[in-house]
C-alpha cells in the first residue's frame, strides 16, 4: 500500500491488519514508551488547504511518536489559500523531500489527484477531501467500535450502526459506510431525504427517515455534524425542526440498547445534532475517538512508510 486515498482501495484483511497494528501501537504508547524510532529520518508534510486543527494535530502527534520530522503547511499563511495551484504546491513538497503528504482539502478528489500526478513521489494520505472521503476517521471509528463492542473478534460482524445526519455532504459518512460494511456491520442511514445523495440506493446500507424507529435496534449511533451553511440552503426548514427529528437528546438516548455507544467525529454542534447531556454521557465515546485517532494514524503512517505490502503474521 503506497497511498491512503479511499476505503474502497483496500480489502477487509488489510483493514483489519491496520486496526490490529493500531491496537499494538496503542499498547506500546500506553506503556512507558512515548516515542518510537520507527520513522526516524522520514519527513511528513501536513498539507492543510482547509482548516482542521484536530485532524492536523492528531496526524502530527502520530508522526512525532514515530520520530518522523513533521512540516506543517497549513492554509492560513500558505500559498494554497492564495490560489497557488495544487501542482505547484506538490512540486514544492517534492523539492522538500517529503516522504509522505497528509492532505486535507476542500475539493473532492484532491488527494487522488496528488497521488496520480507525476508532481511528487511520496505517499499521499487523504485526511479528508471535500465531500468525498475521510478514511483515517473511518478507521479510528471502526477501531473504537471494535474496542467497545467487538467481543475480541477482528471484524464487526453482527453489529449494527446508525449514521445520522448530513450524509450528502459527509466524507466521514462515505468512508464509514464503506469500511463498516466491509467489516461486516449493518449500516443504516438516518437523515432527511434532502440530505441523502441521489444514487444512495447503490450503497450497502438501509435507509430510514425516522430516528426513533432506528435507535432501539442499533449498537452504535454515529452523529454527523450539521454545517451552518446547510441552514440557508433549504435542506431543512430550520435548526429547531432538524433537532427535533434528527438530534440525539437524552430522551432518545434512553431508548438505546444496553451497551450501545454514541459517536461523533467532531467538532460537535451541541444543542443541534447532539445535546450536551448525550455528548457528556457514559455512552459517549467521543473523546476516546480522539485518543484512538493517534494510534490509528500511527498505524497508517507505519504501513505506508515502511517497505511494500503488509505481511501477515510473524517473521
Amino acid at each position: 500500500m503506497r497511498h491512503l486515498l479511499s476505503i474502497a482501495d483496500f480489502s477487509k484483511a488489510e483493514a483489519i491488519s491496520i486496526l490490529d497494528t493500531a491496537n499494538e501501537l496503542a499498547r506500546v504508547s500506553d506503556g512507558a514508551v512515548k516515542k518510537l524510532p520507527t520513522l526516524r529520518g522520514r519527513t511528513i508534510v501536513n498539507l492543510f488547504a482547509e482548516d482542521s486543527t484536530r485532524t492536523r494535530i492528531s496526524f502530527e502527534a502520530a508522526a512525532k511518536r514515530l520520530s518522523a520530522d513533521v512540516i506543517n503547511f497549513s492554509a492560513k499563511g500558505s500559498s494554497v489559500s492564495k490560489g497557488e495551484s495544487l501542482k505547484d504546491t506538490a512540486m514544492t513538497l517534492q523539492a522538500m523531500g517529503a516522504d509522505a503528504v497528509v492532505i486535507r482539502h476542500f475539493a473532492s478528489g484532491a488527494a487522488q489527484r496528488l497521488a496520480d500526478s507525476q508532481w511528487m513521489s511520496g505517499s499521499v494520505v487523504n485526511a479528508g477531501d471535500g465531500t468525498h472521503e475521510h478514511p483515517s476517521q473511518a478507521l479510528l471509528d471502526a477501531f473504537t467500535i471494535r474496542k467497545h463492542l467487538g467481543l475480541g473478534k477482528s471484524d464487526l460482524e453482527g453489529l449494527s450502526v446508525a449514521i445520522v445526519g448530513d450524509v450528502l455532504h459527509s466524507r466521514v459518512a462515505r468512508s464509514n459506510i464503506l469500511l463498516l460494511s466491509k467489516l461486516g456491520a449493518k449500516v443504516v442511514l438516518v437523515a432527511p431525504p434532502t440530505l441523502l445523495p441521489v444514487g444512495v440506493e447503490s450503497w450497502p446500507v438501509s435507509i430510514s427517515y425516522d430516528l426513533d424507529s432506528v435507535i432501539p435496534f442499533v449498537d452504535v449511533v454515529m452523529m454527523l455534524r450539521v454545517q451552518q451553511e446547510r441552514m440557508t440552503e433549504m435542506y431543512f426548514p430550520n435548526a429547531r425542526e432538524y433537532s427535533r427529528y434528527f438530534g440525539l437528546n437524552s430522551d432518545r438516548m434512553k431508548s438505546m440498547k444496553p451497551g450501545a455507544i454514541v459517536m461523533h467525529p467532531g467538532p460537535m454542534n451541541r444543542g443541534l445534532e447532539i445535546s450536551a447531556e448525550v455528548a457528556d454521557s457514559s455512552r459517549s465515546v467521543i473523546t476516546e475517538q480522539v485518543t484512538n485517532g493517534v494510534s490509528v494514524r500511527m498505524a497508517i503512517l507505519y504501513v505506508l512508510l515502511t517497505g511494500g505490502a503488509l505481511e501477515a503474521g510473524g517473521n
Binding site: 524510532p37 522520514r42 507505519y302 515502511t306 517497505g307 505490502a309 517473521n315
Partner: peptide
C-alpha cells in the same frame, strides 16, 4: 516485539506488530 525498532524498515515490507 522489536518490529518498530528495526533499522531496515525503509527496505522491507512492514511486518505485523506482535504484542509486547
Amino acid at each position: 516485539d522489536i518490529t518498530l525498532f528495526r533499522d531496515d524498515l525503509r527496505l522491507r515490507a512492514p511486518k505485523a506488530i506482535m504484542p509486547t
